[in-house]
């Protein structure tokens, strides 16, 4: 894809993003107070979640050389879900995001510990450890569902993912700090994209080109886990965005991570905003879990692109 094409696509997507943001924030014209205290926080949460999920998904698919890799594949999200549900069951509703974050970091450490080999980490071992840690966490979550059937709405809310987190003032300022951190980490990842492009061609080639694969993998693993920890601790587990958006972007913009990095982020954010908008307004009273909408819309879109390419 030529640079000109890329620029025009980026421009188009930028306009789309602005349109969706406008719709999201202004639909049914809320009062200034609601806009500022409720809609804007949700907008930022949704946007950053979409951006992080799509970018991390994209990076994992390259790093692990696996088209089925998604942000949750390395167990971080299950650890996060498990710990935030534990906080809720112990009666610390307020601490759910903090616990979620701790859970994600713990799960990440555990996965790292299992997957670690002498010189670095092996991709297959990394995926397997991620799946095993996920399974352990899911088993305990199932146990919770069994033992505390009356807490099911919160447990399901975390597992299905929802962007209706009710922020208290303190939490909001902490969250803003975390958003800033996420943006920094996302930018840092961009500067690793060249090395990642090289790693995706195989370790031997990468070594011969002077890329320290072990070091890069370790850095990426830690940074992406932190990013996923931040978004899952507020939004729960939102499926599909991190799996499909990178594929769609690669079909349009090609495999070069350096070229498609920001476009992935932009599409991820726009897509989740649109899905959350629908999840929020489609039913007259309550909300639908956003994961249902992301999967439905995303897969229809994906099928149509797949067909066209044939």
């Amino acid at each position: 894809m030529t640079k000109n094409n890329r620029v025009s696509i980026s421009l188009g997507l930028g306009v789309l993003f602005i349109a969706v943001s406008f719709l999201y924030l202004n639909y049914k014209v809320p009062s200034m107070e609601i806009l500022q205290a409720i809609r804007l926080p949700r907008f930022i949460l949704t946007l950053i979640t979409g951006m992080v999920l799509a970018s991390v998904g994209n990076i994992y698919q390259m790093l692990l050389n696996n088209p089925l890799a998604e942000p949750y594949i390395l167990g971080t999200s299950s650890g996060s879900a498990l710990f935030s549900i534990t906080a809720y069951i112990m009666g610390f509703t307020y601490l759910m995001p903090l616990f979620g974050f701790l859970g994600a970091v713990l799960a990440m450490t555990l996965v790292w510990f299992i997957a670690k080999t002498g010189s670095g980490i092996n991709t297959v071992k990394l995926i397997l450890s991620g799946i095993i840690v996920s399974m352990i966490c899911s088993a305990v979550i199932s146990l919770y569902i069994y033992l505390f059937p009356n807490q099911i709405t919160i447990i399901m809310g975390t597992l299905m993912g929802s962007l209706n987190h009710v922020f208290t003032n303190l939490e909001w300022y902490i969250f803003l700090g975390l958003v800033a951190l996420s943006l920094l980490l996302l930018t840092y990842l961009y500067f690793l994209s060249n090395s990642l492009n090289i790693i995706s061609t195989g370790d031997i080639t990468a070594h011969s080109l002077g890329v320290d694969t072990a070091k890069i993998r370790k850095q990426i693993f830690i940074i992406t886990s932190l990013l996923i920890a931040i978004v899952t601790s507020y939004a729960g587990i939102i499926g599909f965005v991190g799996l499909i958006i990178p594929h769609i972007v690669r079909m349009i913009c090609g495999d070069n991570l350096r070229n498609n990095y920001f476009i992935t982020m932009l599409i991820g954010g726009t897509f989740l905003l649109l899905c959350d908008f629908l999840a929020f307004h489609i039913s007259p009273f309550g909300e639908l879990p956003v994961g249902i909408i992301t999967t439905l819309i995303g897969s229809i879109f994906f099928i149509s692109i797949l067909r066209k390419r044939n």
Partner: peptide, 26 residues
Amino acid sequence: FIAKNEDLVKANPDVIIALSQVSREE
């Protein structure tokens, strides 16, 4: 059902009864 935060604030209740383990301060 799960209510929408916006609707709730707009409805402006006179009394809140919260049996959801959250404290008054929260």
